[in-house]
């Protein structure tokens, strides 16, 4: 265990000694705050009748304003921990730092476990940061319309801890993807194409195509929403059946483990030349 703690300390040092993590975190918090604040204004305006004629476009019943708005932290923010994990893993290949890494610690499996755990921790921190963005901006907008931001309600507290878990798991998935696809450019393209295009399309399709329907809930984005329990995509996506929250967590964990183990055998154990 002593050596795992050394490996963890090294992986943390790798992350904090380059600018990537806080640059990504800044972009994330800005993006989440703008979207959450903007849509909170719209929904709160409709709910309080301040935006005339908007009733038809308000939140459907069963989607409370607060948790829906705060969940933008994960529903749009989740791509950032994935990117962080994928970039951290692919950087080792791109800059050939696997050489000093494996010289300092030739137990490659241990290094990968340490990297995955470290990024999981950073993913959780990203969860906190993203929630600060969505709750500060969204809560402010809600409060400005005279509504209760309900920061400490049971629903919101549940959303908070599950959001943190979900962001942690997404970062671990990012590491898995990065070792599975060591080319940094390819990994970025896959993350963006899958999260922004392929998955939303598949989820929508699963809502309409019968034979796809049973599998839709196992898509990582669906599993993620199931774990968080609230997301705009479940409103828009024609809402197919969802997993239980803990099942969603297990599905995400499964993706992370599968990708990481797959990457270990395909790229991580290969000759470093």
């Amino acid at each position: 265990m002593k050596n795992l703690s050394s490996a963890l300390a090294s992986e943390v040092a790798k992350l904090v000694s380059v600018r990537l993590w806080w640059v990504l975190a800044l972009i994330m918090v800005g993006y989440v705050a703008v979207v959450a604040g903007g849509l909170a204004t719209v929904f709160a305006g409709i709910e309080t009748g301040k935006i005339p004629g908007g009733e038809a476009h308000g939140l459907p019943p069963g989607f409370p304003l607060t948790t829906t708005v705060y969940s933008f932290a994960t529903s749009i923010g989740y791509v950032f921990p994935v990117l962080l994990g994928a970039l951290a893993a692919t950087a080792e290949f791109r800059y050939q730092t696997l050489t000093p890494t494996f010289l300092a610690d030739p137990r490659r499996g241990r290094v990968l476990v340490a990297k995955s755990l470290t990024l999981t921790g950073f993913g959780a921190a990203y969860g906190v940061i993203a929630l600060v963005g969505s709750m500060a901006a969204g809560g402010l907008a809600i409060a400005l319309f005279g509504l209760d931001p309900a920061f400490l309600s049971d629903e919101v507290l549940t959303l908070i801890w599950r959001s943190i878990i979900v962001m942690a798991l997404w970062a671990a998935i990012g590491v898995g993807l990065g070792v599975l696809v060591p080319s940094q450019v390819a990994a970025i393209v896959i993350v963006l194409a899958f999260t922004q295009f392929v998955e939303p399309l598949l989820r929508t399709a699963a809502g309409f195509i019968d034979w796809l329907e049973p599998y839709g809930k196992f898509l990582p984005g669906s599993a993620s929403d199931a774990l968080v329990g609230s997301s705009v995509f479940t409103i828009m996506g024609g809402s197919t059946a969802q997993l239980e929250w803990w099942q969603g967590g297990l599905v995400l964990l499964g993706y992370a483990v599968l990708a990481t183990v797959g990457g270990f055998f395909t790229s991580w154990r290969r000759d470093v030349t």
Binding site: N3, S6, S10, K14, L20, A91, T99
Partner: peptide
């Protein structure tokens, strides 16, 4: 102690931090 020909550095990391990362790994 090994130094291999390929330049194996993260360009965004300082020299001290580069060494510190691997010193940590090796305790």
């Amino acid at each position: 102690g090994a130094a291999l020909e390929a330049a194996s550095f993260h360009p965004g990391r300082s020299a001290f931090n580069h060494l510190a990362v691997y010193a940590r790994a090796a305790a």
